[in-house]
Design a protein around this nucleic acid. Sequence first.
DNA 1: AATGAATGAGGTTTCATTCAT
DNA 2: TATGAATGAAACCTCATTCAT
Lengths: 201, 201, 201, 201
Amino acid sequence: MSNKRQQIIEVAAALMHSKGYENTKISDILDAAQLGKGQFYHYFSSKHELGLAILDHFFANWNRRLMENVLSSQQDPKIKFDAMFESIIELHRNNQAKCGCVFGNLAIEMSEHDEIFRKKLEAVFDIWTEKLKQVFDNMISPVQVESSETGKLAQGIVAMIEGGILLMKNKQDISTLVNVAEQAKILVDCFVQRHTLLGVR
Amino acid sequence: MSNKRQQIIEVAAALMHSKGYENTKISDILDAAQLGKGQFYHYFSSKHELGLAILDHFFANWNRRLMENVLSSQQDPKIKFDAMFESIIELHRNNQAKCGCVFGNLAIEMSEHDEIFRKKLEAVFDIWTEKLKQVFDNMISPVQVESSETGKLAQGIVAMIEGGILLMKNKQDISTLVNVAEQAKILVDCFVQRHTLLGVR
Amino acid sequence: MSNKRQQIIEVAAALMHSKGYENTKISDILDAAQLGKGQFYHYFSSKHELGLAILDHFFANWNRRLMENVLSSQQDPKIKFDAMFESIIELHRNNQAKCGCVFGNLAIEMSEHDEIFRKKLEAVFDIWTEKLKQVFDNMISPVQVESSETGKLAQGIVAMIEGGILLMKNKQDISTLVNVAEQAKILVDCFVQRHTLLGVR
Amino acid sequence: MSNKRQQIIEVAAALMHSKGYENTKISDILDAAQLGKGQFYHYFSSKHELGLAILDHFFANWNRRLMENVLSSQQDPKIKFDAMFESIIELHRNNQAKCGCVFGNLAIEMSEHDEIFRKKLEAVFDIWTEKLKQVFDNMISPVQVESSETGKLAQGIVAMIEGGILLMKNKQDISTLVNVAEQAKILVDCFVQRHTLLGVR
DNA sequence: AATGAATGAGGTTTCATTCAT
DNA sequence: TATGAATGAAACCTCATTCAT
């Protein structure tokens, strides 16, 4: 895979994060990457293919940064859970709280009318939910709860984060996300308390 | 306000809910409304103005249906809270869980690059949050908590709903939203329990 | 059907006759018709649709001029047959023997890769063959031959004419077509002689 | 002449036979020949030059297969004439009756706007006509007819074949060509009969 | 000889908006 | 009001050809 291709992906990824798929024009990309008019189709067969490549690019980064480095580390599950929020908040603080979550953004823009995007994005949210579920399982272990319980909690937490980012993007204010993260922690604390108390009994 | 103008708004609202602002073409609207191509600019000065009118239209409906009829009714706050979820879930079930929330959709598409849309949408979420806050205040009354507490919870709940709708739209499966609603209720229950117990003391 | 649409068809028909489908560019058409850039798609949904409209236009003219006015007239079949050649030769003389037959041209350019064009063109050749068959049937009537005999002769004559036009276009010399027409008449004379002699017996 | 050059010609010939000159893209050729994108201009100065080389390639094959092996053999002229049709029909049967005659195809596509192609193609048809004329001269020998008579017949036969192939390509049905070949033989039989009877007298 | 990146003109198509009637 | 024609910038994409290595 050539260097230029990667360069295009990176430049375009920033544009697409900020402007969405449709509103990112190929000419914008080529201008930003300082490439000639005909170059784009040397590296991508279509704008759609680029969009998917960008999604893969974001997925890879996110997977490494959050799923592997944070949620799969050997630390205490509570610490991992908190670290996830720190990482997410840090990211959006760097973006002035304006861009939102690429996955959420694209889910809203593309899911209804593009099945390929929809499936890829579904995988992102599924992986996230599953990883969080494992973290929650560990939080209450050795107590065992019906497996679907932690899975449902995990989905609720992912929803809170995505919704929190959405509100933050609209308000262009990071504190919105910070507050929603607090609420998410409370929900998890509730859950843990309920189940560890039960376990102790 | 003429009849035709309202007709355009209603037809366009459905399109914009499903396809977003940019992907809704004026010609699509006029085709769907069975109006001549020149009609549009008699009623709207630009596509942008139509977009805002549609947003107002959605706001008015939503305000009446949810804010007034449900959240401002004289019923028990818990019942109102549950009724809100029922109403939301009913709406999305009718849409085959595919369209998502117009406000969330437009927030993601427009907030970063269109300040007017951003402000209007911000108002929607602010009103919602404020109304919910009052419901939560009533749930724990006569206990008094620091005002910001219920406000933060309300924001968390709005985030959960928006995030739940986002995940639902991506999965095209209403059960996602149903589950997230459950989690939201749990969070509120936790809150209420914590504060009413304290209050009793 | 608007005037401009017809104007575009006529301008484009001349270009497509001379340059073929692919080599006729929409910008050429708009230049020739003195229309602005965006006009084309007001009248046609695609270049392909225009191509088919042009084909219909040529078909209508050809059908009226040759099939109806000449081959369906009440005259003696031999006279009709000769008149057909005169009409065809006259047409190509006016074109300096350069353009060839639109139907033959498009058959060669489009048949293999465009089923819609192929079918429309097939209809042209089928109608022509059928009309000629009837003329031949009349030439030898009241003698009856197996029906397929005159049909096969008719197909052979159509082939000669199309091939004659092809050679003429390549040589840019009308005399090629004139000679091939002579040969075609000889073939028909042979046929008539063989069957009327038999009939006399 | 290098090996690769010949390889390009052969691959491109097949493409150009099926798709014509304009619709055969250099990148298609290089893909099909499994060569790098920069290779083309080492072997050809332009697409135009390649087109002419392909024409020469087809001409050489055709000349050997039909003009020399068949029409110039030492056999009886009637047998040679029939063998020519067998060879042609065999060729098109192998092509599923879809491609048509390269020479006819290119004559229609190129003659009007490319004088070099036109001349080369004219030579093909002239050679063919001349060779057929000799065959016909031999059929009626020792009877002598005015030389132009057999020449005109020959041109008529070439026209029939090209027209028959054109109709066959449009119908995608080999039986069209088979029938036209029958009609061509009838025309020649007529001619021979007329002149040998005269000659016997 | 060989590779694939680079160029850039130009192709079809889209669309918000304006104009003429 | 109402109609649809007109405009033209700009979108995505194609492709013959040239360049750098």
